[in-house]
Amino acid sequence: MYNVISEINKLEEKYGEEFNWGTDLKPEYFETELKRETTIAPFKSVKAIARSYSNDDVLFVLDDEVYRIYHLTYSGGNPRYQEFTDGQAAVDYIEKRFLNEYL
Rank of each mutant, 00 (worst) to 15 (best):
E28Y: 08
E17S: 14
F84V: 02
E13S: 12
F84S: 00
T38F: 05
K44C: 09
E37K: 04
A48G: 03
Y29C: 10
L62T: 14
D24S: 12
T39W: 10
S52D: 13
E37G: 10
G16W: 08
A41M: 10
K26F: 14
L59V: 08
E18Y: 08
E28T: 08
I69C: 07
A48P: 00
F19V: 08
G76K: 11
N55M: 07
E28Q: 06
L25P: 04
I49M: 00
I40P: 02
T23P: 02
P42D: 06
R51Y: 03
K10P: 00
E37V: 08
G16D: 03
F84R: 02
T23Y: 07
A48H: 00
N9S: 13
Y81H: 14
E17N: 14
E31N: 05
A41Q: 06
L11Q: 08
G77I: 05
G76A: 04
Y70V: 04
K35G: 06
L11D: 05
D63N: 14
Y74V: 09
I40W: 12
K44I: 10
L34K: 02
T73Q: 09
A48F: 10
T85I: 14
H71V: 08
P79K: 01
T39P: 03
I49P: 07
P42Y: 09
E65A: 13
F30Y: 15
P27W: 05
V58G: 00
A48C: 03
F43V: 05
L59I: 03
S54M: 14
D57V: 01
V46I: 15
R36A: 11
S6H: 04
T39D: 15
Y15W: 04
G76E: 02
P42R: 07
L11K: 01
L34S: 05
L25Y: 01
H71N: 11
K35C: 10
D57L: 06
V58T: 04
T32F: 10
E28P: 00
E7G: 07
P42G: 11
L11I: 09
K10M: 13
